[in-house]
């Protein structure tokens, strides 16, 4: 009776052990599936991230080279791709060049205006000389007039015999009158010319002085602006270089992450080992039964010896399974040979 109970208990123990081992094994398999699934997704995701990082790096590199203007390279490609060559730095330097030429021209014009002022001054002086010469001409005309009157007085004394002489004197007087009128007209023209020259001189003077100061101010302002643009350009280049560095680091980090994801293999190996261990444990249940201890058909000493033998065998086979298990305890130690 007690034998039968013992056998039943032994069977129940085995059945419960098997059930529990099966449950643990199932959950372990679930863990393995979940990990595998997650790892596949993470690998895909990190791979995508690395691609994006690489694209970003490529874009930043293009931008940097465009900013720096790789002049040697561009000169080699001259004519082939003229539009691309206009980057900020070359735009700045070309604008600077154009404005410099412009300012130089204005300064030249100003200098010429100053010279023109001197010339106009000379012209005004010469006009004054013309005026004084006209006064001399008028004086001569006046003297001629007096002379002709005196000639007519003398002609009158001669009576009828002086009539012809009187006509000549009259003609001389007319000439003097004409030359007087003529020199008056010239005087009027010279006067208006003097007014015009004075006005022109004023305009040129304003032009000469104003333009010069404006041009010099402009030149200074342009230089300042060029410096500011250069600063901005330098700052942008530096920032882009930094961004490029960060992209490199990001790429490296993603690489590390992808590498780290290869722990899946270890998990698989560990789970396989556990699988084998479970088999050994199940075998243990088969080999070592309570009924063996309670079987009174054999002497006690023999039963204990047999059980001890079974235990030894069990220990031996578990140790054997354990030796096959993964020797590695961390990711860092395994190196490439794992994969």
């Amino acid at each position: 009776m007690s034998d039968e109970l013992a056998r039943k208990l032994s069977n129940d123990l085995k059945a419960e052990l098997n059930r529990e081992v099966a449950s643990v094994r199932m959950e372990m398999e679930q863990i393995r599936d979940l990990v595998q699934d997650a790892i596949v997704r993470l690998t895909d995701s990190f791979g995508g991230m690395r691609d994006q990082s690489n694209r970003q790096l490529a874009l930043v590199t293009t931008l940097t080279s465009s900013m720096e203007g790789n002049s040697d390279q561009e000169e080699a490609q001259e004519g082939e791709d003229a539009v691309k060559r206009i980057n900020i730095r070359s735009f700045v330097s070309e604008t600077d060049q154009i404005l410099r030429t412009f300012v130089d021209h204005i300064i030249l014009v100003s200098r010429q205006s100053m010279e023109m002022v001197h010339r106009v001054d000379e012209l005004a002086t010469q006009m004054n000389e013309v005026s004084s010469l006209l006064k001399d001409i008028n004086a001569i005309a006046e003297l001629t007039n007096v002379l002709s009157l005196n000639a007519r007085i003398v002609a009158a004394r001669a009576g009828s015999s002086g009539a012809a002489f009187s006509v000549v004197a009259g003609e001389v007087r007319k000439l003097s009158k004409n030359s007087h009128e003529f020199s008056d007209k010239i005087g009027a023209v010279v006067g208006s010319a003097k007014t015009n020259i004075h006005a022109a001189k004023n305009i040129i003077e304003v032009m000469a002085s104003k333009d010069m100061s404006f041009a010099i101010e402009s030149k200074g302002r342009v230089d300042e602006m060029m410096e500011e643009v250069s600063d901005i350009d330098r700052y942008t280049s530096e920032t882009i270089a930094q961004v490029s560095g960060i992209a490199d680091e990001l790429n490296q980090s993603v690489g590390n992450a992808v590498m780290s994801l290869q722990f899946e293999d270890m998990v698989s190996q560990l789970s396989a080992s556990m699988e084998r261990k479970f088999a050994v444990i199940e075998q243990f249940a088969e080999v070592i039964g309570i009924d063996q201890l309670t079987d009174e058909s054999q002497p006690m000493a023999e039963r204990v010896e047999k059980l001890q033998e079974s235990l030894n065998m069990q220990i031996q086979s578990f140790d054997e399974v354990d030796r096959q298990a993964v020797q590695q305890s961390s990711m860092d130690e395994g190196d490439i040979e794992l994969f």
Binding site: L149, N150, R152, I153, A156
Partner: peptide
């Protein structure tokens, strides 16, 4: 008769030319 004419302010004056010997600037 012949008259030599001249002005004095607004007045227009004349002298018989036979009486005149000559004319000079002041």
């Amino acid at each position: 008769m012949l008259v030599s004419t001249f002005t004095l302010g607004e007045l227009y004056l004349g002298i018989d030319i036979i009486l005149v010997r000559e004319i000079n600037r002041s």
